[in-house]
Amino acid sequence: MEKKSVKAWLYLLPAMLFLGIFLIYPLVDVFVYSFEENYNFASQSYTGTGLFNYSYVLRDPYFLQALKNTFLLVVITVPLSTGLALLISVGLSSIKPLRELYQTVFFLPYVTNTLAVGLVFMILFKRTPYSDGFVNLLLSLFHAGPVDFIDGPYGAKMLVLCLYTIWVVMPFKILILTSALASVNQTYYNAAKIDGTSGLRIFFRITLPMISPSLVYLIITGFIGAFKAYSDAVALFGTNLNAAGMNTIVGYVYDMLYGNSGGYPSYASAAAILLFAIVLTITCINLLVSRKHVHYIS
């Protein structure tokens, strides 16, 4: 028994070392920094300890803006992208001709480079001296617009950011959900059909519970992913996100460390810990809520 456990620890050692050095230690370090005032990397010094960093960050209008942006992004994109992905997956599962083609088309954004997608969105939305962008062209057909989606009103910018995020995260969700749908045994549907079950009832009483583990997985990772959003905003609005009013929490952390206003590891740490706390809380709530509604089939 003793020997066995030594062996087990030996096998675990590489992963534990790796995780310890690159995950646990930095996490603890960040936690410590967040309580040290004016920590300086170069001199490894600080001027005091306490909750000052937190109170500063929580009063910083840039942080509050980032917080608002992130929350809006989460609340809008997670349900929308998951719901749309579910609709598309159900559609994909119920058609036969050309199914593979459609699956490929819907999966393409996943293998496309983020910046390439950003470029496409620029063509769609960005106003240049030569064109108002494709979407404004469409809007003008209905005698609306033009709207400046990239440098214009907050709502327009948020809309583009949300569209972009949904577009980027959906392929993976479709992939997971189509395979979840395919793994539901056809005899359940046959049984339901013989019993005269309506299509809607089959979906809500059979399909949905059967794929609920995948769905919950997608919702939880979706929440976490959206809270960590940053690169999407950069791809659309450039690196000076504070000026654009489109910063996210991760963007704020980055700016505090390296941005124009950078050089504040203490504030960055406090913001990072706040994000960690938010994500942890939301994930716990997710798990608690889903426990009631998810059916894991052993």
């Binding site: 045994n185 005899t187 359940y188 046959n190 049984a191 013989i194 009483r205 059979i206 519970p209 059967m210 609920s212 059916h295 089939i297």
Partner: peptide, 11 residues
């Protein structure tokens, strides 16, 4: 109909 694998809804 009684199916070979019963097709009882597991949830």
């Amino acid at each position: 109909m009684v199916f070979q694998n019963y097709a009882l809804y597991p949830h």
